[in-house]
Design a protein around this nucleic acid. Structure first.
Length: 485
RNA sequence: CGGGUUGUAGCGCAGGGGCUAGCGCGCUUGGUUCGGGACCAAGAGGUCGUGGGUUCAAUUCCCACCAGCCCGACCA
């Protein structure tokens, strides 16, 4: 494998692609804009999905599955919704050798077909709340695609809940936003800002959209998850009414929320380095790799020693693999497993065997320690925890270092200026500033700098005394501005 | 959908109006190596993107088409 990873400083986009291809996470497919998720990438998705699913169930949700084909007419029932999604729909017009009476849309999201079903399942307040989630693939025919971040087809989960009152629905929207925040911070080590989207950035058909926003190593923001308060929009579009406790009729209140395989892109762009992938231990297919180092005469003994170390760890439930391939050199293996992002490498050679030790090397810092054999299990435990913690802290420090308070438009333009190649300089990042709430201000900033309002942070709306950083009018919110993926 | 760019071995590329179409990596077999991407030897592997044209002769020149990738507007 002679192909090298392009350093981040040379070409960040190419670096990202190189990581994915070299670590064998995904590959381009014969279908334009669609990718193949390879086993090493899919295993990340599986681990992430299983943990998130556990958290959904812990908050009272159930999984269901709805069809991927949606009658075109369903989409048209919610005006904003269809307007938002039409440009990117894939439509099936023929099936079974005949033209269909009504074209079927390959779902870009499932609100419409789900609310069609909810109509027949909800009659009374006793039927509420309905807390359903589905794990599915969706299709959005984007013009411009990028592995994991934006592909024509992607995997995600979409929660769709129905509630008796507005308050219940809003509470659910925020609850799930927090489930996402806790999950990505604890499990994926991605520090995020939870906030509300501006009017122009919200989901087509929502009353309010909330998101969690992460910062990538090129200082751009990535929306890592969304939670929508849908009001009664879909209930009205699909005529879903229920009898209230007082006997009157009311429309059902709704939420929807989702995260996708895009999270894998976020993990790569937050933690990885020029040697390859860096993964939080929670997500790694292998937590540790044992690499025996032997000469021909010591081969048998060293292999037995390495096997012994591997078994010790495996018996304690660690995900560990022994790389006993004798056709590759140790140096090769070091590089290869670093590329794959395995959190800890254990080197076991003749010197270690003689002393009853191994060398343990952290992927995140490169730090090497010599560990006695009977302490390996415990040290592995400690190191894995330390790596998990360090990845989060490191990312958080990076983000905080690249977040700046900005109060006027000139400084804002300066902050988001780019070099001739369109690359942000290292002083760029998130801008924290006041905003008057007008669409025009937002549009002007976007036109001038490509930066947009990522969100209005929920926990940072105190002391709004001052003027909009964009136009100087009295401010109503505090916002995070950034360029985004 | 606009702009750019590329299609030659699995990957990255070179080449060239006719002759056995090459190079590096990877792959296979055997041997020597092995504490940061080892080496030797012998092999396997090609409708030169597709269609048409020019020509005695096209993978090479011309035209069209198709596809991929990159960059923009749209978006998780």
């Amino acid at each position: 494998m002679a192909e090298k990873i392009t350093p981040r400083s040379v070409d960040y986009s190419q670096w990202y692609i190189d990581i994915i291809l070299n670590a064998k996470l995904a590959d381009y497919s014969p279908v334009k804009g669609s990718m193949v998720i390879r086993p090493r990438g899919y295993s990340i998705w599986e681990r992430l999905r299983d943990e998130l699913d556990r958290r959904f169930k812990a908050t009272g949700h159930q999984n269901a599955y709805f069809p991927m084909f949606i009658p075109m007419s369903f989409l048209k029932k919610e005006a904003e919704h269809v307007e938002g999604f039409s440009p990117e729909l894939a439509v099936v017009t023929h099936a079974g050798g005949e033209e269909l009476e009504e074209p079927l849309v390959v779902r870009p999201t499932s609100e419409t077909i789900i609310w069609h079903m909810y109509k027949s399942w909800i009659q009374s307040y006793r039927d509420l709340p309905l807390l359903y989630n589905q794990w599915a693939n969706v299709v959005r025919w984007e013009k411009r695609t990028r592995l994991f971040l934006r592909t024509a087809e992607f995997l995600w989960q979409e929660g769709h809940t129905a509630h008796e009152t507005k308050e219940d629905a809003i509470e659910e929207t925020l609850r799930m936003l927090n489930v996402y925040k806790d999950f990505v911070e604890e499990y994926l080590c991605l520090p995020v800002i939870a906030g509300k989207k501006s009017e122009s950035e919200k989901f087509a058909g929502a009353v309010d959209t909330y998101s969690i926003e992460a910062m990538m190593q090129d200082f751009k923001a990535l929306q890592a998850g969304t939670s929508h308060f849908l009001g009664q929009n879909f209930a009205k579009a699909f005529d879903v009414q229920f009898q209230t406790r007082s006997g009157t009729l009311d429309y059902v209140w709704a939420t929807s929320w989702g995260v996708s395989t895009r999270l894998i892109g976020a993990i790569i762009m937050t933690h990885s380095d020029d040697k390859g992938l860096v993964l939080p231990p929670t997500l790694a297919q292998e937590e540790l790799v044992v690499i025996p180092i032997f000469k021909t005469d010591s081969k048998t003994d060293v292999l037995r020693y390495a096997q012994d170390v591997t078994s010790m760890l495996r018996d304690r439930g660690r995900r560990v693999v022994l790389d006993d391939d004798d056709t590759a050199s140790p140096g090769w293996k070091f590089a290869e497993w670093e590329m794959r992002g395995v959190p800890i490498r254990i080197e076991a050679g003749p010197k270690d065997m003689a002393q009853g030790t191994v060398v343990m090397v952290r992927r995140d810092t490169g730090e090497k320690v010599t560990v006695k054999k009977d302490e390996i299990v415990q040290r592995a435990d400690e190191l894995l925890k330390a790596i998990q913690k360090n990845l989060f802290e490191r990312a958080k420090q990076f983000r905080d270092k690249h977040t700046k308070d900005i109060a006027d438009y000139e400084s804002m333009k300066q902050y988001f200026s780019t070099d001739s190649a369109g690359v942000s300089d290292s002083n760029s990042g998130f801008a924290r500033g006041l905003w008057c709430g007008s669409k025009e201000c937002e549009a002007k900033l976007k036109a001038d700098t490509k930066a947009t309002i990522r969100c209005l942070p929920l926990d940072d709306q105190d002391d709004i005394n001052g003027v909009c950083a964009l136009c100087g009018a009295p401010a109503k919110h505090r916002a995070i501005f950034a360029r985004a993926y």
